[in-house]
């Protein structure tokens, strides 16, 4: 995460002038570790989904498990539910955190510090605690419902065990990270630019759309792509807070692997999720690379 932050916020560093082999030596160890413990097993399992053991014991190329996935309405419904949950959560995260980030950037009051601490608080609470706390709070006959009834609002429908359950849990969980990246992006906006715009009579919305948003475009891209990766594969929140069916891909993969005991289909689901997530990963890498290139040109 600190990588993301620094790349999203770091001021232009000294340009890389010479190509030095010692630099490569420094990164050799981590790259080797990633290759051995991540790439190799991942490639093996992807390979295993297309080069499949046949009933007679021999191995042959087959895309049957993919054909099954894309012709199985149950699997497709789960994939659709995963997209829905991810996108709704991402939109909510931006909608909630962007105003806070703007407020934190332009307010120097003590209240701002307090709000920042409060918004980062979820980072220090383990997920399992949040989940059980949310069930007690948002659940049927929970604290929220009781409070609402005290002030005379009835008819509360608990989001627990509905598609909104995991959305709420995941917004809670991903909020600190989103806010950190956005406030970091905000700090790069020069006050002088905004004052200049105000001087020529730009309204608040105009400043937001013409000055602030273009300058934090990169932060938004980073936060969107990384949140997508994190949310799409979530397993814990969906199965604690969400409905039984449709499932999100995280719990679905887990269940296919451990309960249905079908490693081939689980690997196929994982490969499909991986392929979809690599689009988001690509967007992230490109945004970093563009920034790097821009820095080098300077």
């Amino acid at each position: 995460m600190s990588d993301t932050l620094s790349s999203a916020t770091a001021p232009a560093s000294a340009p890389l002038t010479k190509w030095r082999p010692t630099g490569l030596l420094f990164i050799a160890a981590p790259i080797l570790l990633i290759a051995i413990f991540l790439f190799y097993p991942a490639l093996r399992s992807i390979w295993g989904t297309i080069y499949v053991r046949q009933p007679d014991g021999s191995y042959a190329f087959s895309i049957a498990s993919y054909l099954y996935f894309f012709s199985d309405s149950y699997s497709l419904t789960n994939l659709g539910r995963t997209f829905w949950t991810t996108i709704v959560t991402m939109v909510l995260l931006i909608a909630i955190n962007l105003p806070i980030a703007i407020y934190l950037r332009f307010s120097g009051s003590r209240l701002a510090v307090f709000i920042q601490v409060l918004a980062l608080f979820p980072m220090f609470v383990p997920g399992i605690v949040i989940v059980y706390a949310l069930i007690r709070y948002l659940g049927p006959n929970g604290l929220l419902q009781t409070l609402l009834e005290v002030v005379g609002i009835g008819g509360f429908q608990s989001p627990y065990l509905t598609p909104w359950g995991p959305v709420i849990g995941m917004v809670w969980d991903a909020m600190p990270f989103t806010l950190l990246v956005l406030t970091a992006g905000m700090s790069g906006i020069a006050t002088s630019a905004i004052e200049a715009a105000q001087d020529v009579g730009a309204g608040r919305l105009r400043i937001l759309f013409s000055i602030i948003l273009p300058q934090i475009k990169n932060s938004l891209l980073v936060v969107t792509s990384l949140n997508f990766l994190g949310l799409f594969g979530q397993a814990f929140m969906p199965f604690m807070l969400g409905p039984t069916s449709p499932e999100m891909m995280g719990p679905f993969m887990l269940r296919t692997f451990s309960t249905v005991r079908d490693p081939l289909q689980a690997a196929t689901q994982a490969t499909i999720v991986f392929a979809l997530c690599s689009v988001a990963g690509l967007a992230y890498v490109r945004s970093i690379a563009r920034r790097r290139a821009a820095e080098l040109v300077k």
Binding site: Y74, T77, P243, T244, S245, P246, E247, R255, T256, T259, V260
Partner: peptide, 12 residues
């Protein structure tokens, strides 16, 4: 269990 997910749980 898998049959339950496909035949019972998904009918809600």
């Amino acid at each position: 269990f898998d049959g339950w997910y496909r035949n019972v749980a998904s009918n809600l």
